[in-house]
Deep mutational scan, measured.
Amino acid sequence: MQRVNMIMAESPGLITICLLGYLLSAECTVFLDHENANKILNRPKRYNSGKLEEFVQGNLERECMEEKCSFEEAREVFENTERTTEFWKQYVDGDQCESNPCLNGGSCKDDINSYECWCPFGFEGKNCELDVTCNIKNGRCEQFCKNSADNKVVCSCTEGYRLAENQKSCEPAVPFPCGRVSVSQTSKLTRAETVFPDVDYVNSTEAETILDNITQSTQSFNDFTRVVGGEDAKPGQFPWQVVLNGKVDAFCGGSIVNEKWIVTAAHCVETGVKITVVAGEHNIEETEHTEQKRNVIRIIPHHNYNAAINKYNHDIALLELDEPLVLNSYVTPICIADKEYTNIFLKFGSGYVSGWGRVFHKGRSALVLQYLRVPLVDRATCLRSTKFTIYNNMFCAGFHEGGRDSCQGDSGGPHVTEVEGTSFLTGIISWGEECAMKGKYGIYTKVSRYVNWIKEKTKLT
């Protein structure tokens, strides 16, 4: 034993070699072989497995989906700052455009905790909710729209109204504003409101030439003092309507412009014939205590009207009353817009006519005020429907199939267009061939041609 100890002390290297040989010859039971080890760690190889990531292109799944990435790591994937920024906006807080917040056709661009709407022409605001041009839906104005110097929408209202708090709607500024039905039992019968379409306001006024200088022999019209197929109006439903009495009662109609003036057809009036105007009328054979009678003290036909040349060209006249009318729910003026808007309103496509005229061709006159909704007829169809001249200051309205029309005794009465609950004068009943005849239409004086003249002559002093 002493000898062994001496050998170990003198030859430590020998001992180490012996131990190493023993270990190498022993069977290893701690580690699995290569094949079995792979069965336990069965993990798919990654895209760049075996390579240094710093030297390969980034992978979106590896960089940002398996674990949260930084902007720089995302930049490695896209290799483009702009594309990385677009991805980053949604990656950080989701897609803010998912709810489609942009209105009126706006395009949404996502941002971090926010979004941006790219608005089409005519709109602005956070969600493109603000109209900035009158060309689109009248700028959301209830009545009139004008573009300011910086191309912003400025709404306005006709006389007797003021802008509401929203700067879009119009509200009454006087007790009985024009064009409004205020009798409670008839307010439910107000005709369907007309909503502004998209309009090209630059070209809204037709490029028409008034044929002022045409000389033409007097034409022989049949029954051209021209509501057939209409309905009984309720008291106060058309408070701007008046009836004219002269040699015979209810020979023509008219509309209240203001307390002192009536507008009617020029062919209705004769110099030297006494005319009485009755406002607030409903049943011409009954006294309903809503009527107001006034005498006409002055007749002003349009300066281009000449019955000797043509009885229905420039067929418009103004009547001055001896005493002002007292405005109330049964006696209310009709609204008159400017030339541009009167023309736009007419193009809405349908209007209402009213009167006490004959209820059928050569038949009896109506006792109760009649009204009828009539569609506008395109000019080409209008011209083809008659052998008589249709001037540019006239328009056609009615039904091709016949059966409904204005008729004798309705002449001078109103053709009105309702705009968001307020009625505007767009025409004056003038003439036609018979009444409600198939293929024939009622012919009306186009008020847009005469609004400046009306307003100039009827100013209240």
Rank of each mutant, 00 (worst) to 15 (best):
V4E: 07
V4Y: 06
N5Q: 11
M6Y: 09
I7Q: 11
A9L: 12
S11D: 04
G13R: 07
L14E: 02
L14F: 12
C18A: 10
G21V: 14
L24R: 03
A26W: 02
F31L: 15
D33R: 10
D33P: 05
D33L: 10
G58M: 08
R62N: 04
E66C: 03
E79W: 10
N80D: 15
R83I: 12
R83D: 15
T84C: 04
T84L: 05
T85Y: 05
W88A: 15
W88Y: 15
Q90S: 14
G94V: 10
C97Q: 01
G105W: 02
G106N: 01
C108M: 00
K109R: 09
P120V: 08
F121R: 10
G122E: 07
F123A: 03
F123N: 03
F123M: 03
C128H: 02
N135H: 08
R140S: 03
E142T: 09
E142I: 04
F144G: 01
K146N: 08
C157W: 00
N166K: 02
Q167E: 07
K168I: 10
S169I: 05
E171S: 07
P175C: 03
C178G: 00
V181A: 11
V183T: 09
S184I: 13
T186V: 11
R191S: 14
V195R: 12
V195P: 09
N203G: 11
S204I: 05
S204V: 13
S204L: 12
S204P: 12
T215C: 04
Q216C: 06
T218F: 10
S220L: 12
D223I: 10
D223K: 09
F224I: 10
R226G: 12
V228L: 07
D232E: 13
A233Q: 06
K234E: 12
Q237E: 05
Q237M: 09
F238K: 03
Q241G: 06
V243S: 12
L244T: 02
S255G: 05
S255H: 02
S255V: 11
V257G: 01
T264Q: 00
V269L: 11
E270T: 13
T271E: 12
G272W: 06
H282F: 08
H282T: 12
E288S: 10
H289A: 06
T290M: 08
R294L: 01
H302L: 01
N304V: 03
K311W: 04
N313V: 10
N313H: 13
D315H: 01
L321N: 00
Y330N: 05
K339S: 15
K347P: 00
Y352F: 14
V353H: 04
V359M: 15
V359L: 14
S365I: 11
L369S: 13
Q370G: 08
L372E: 11
P375K: 15
P375M: 14
L376K: 06
A380M: 07
K387A: 12
K387Q: 14
M394D: 01
C396G: 00
E401P: 14
D405L: 14
T417A: 05
E420R: 11
F424G: 00
L425E: 00
G427R: 00
G432Q: 08
K440R: 13
K440D: 14
I443P: 02
Y444T: 00
K446E: 05
K459T: 15
K459R: 07
K459H: 12
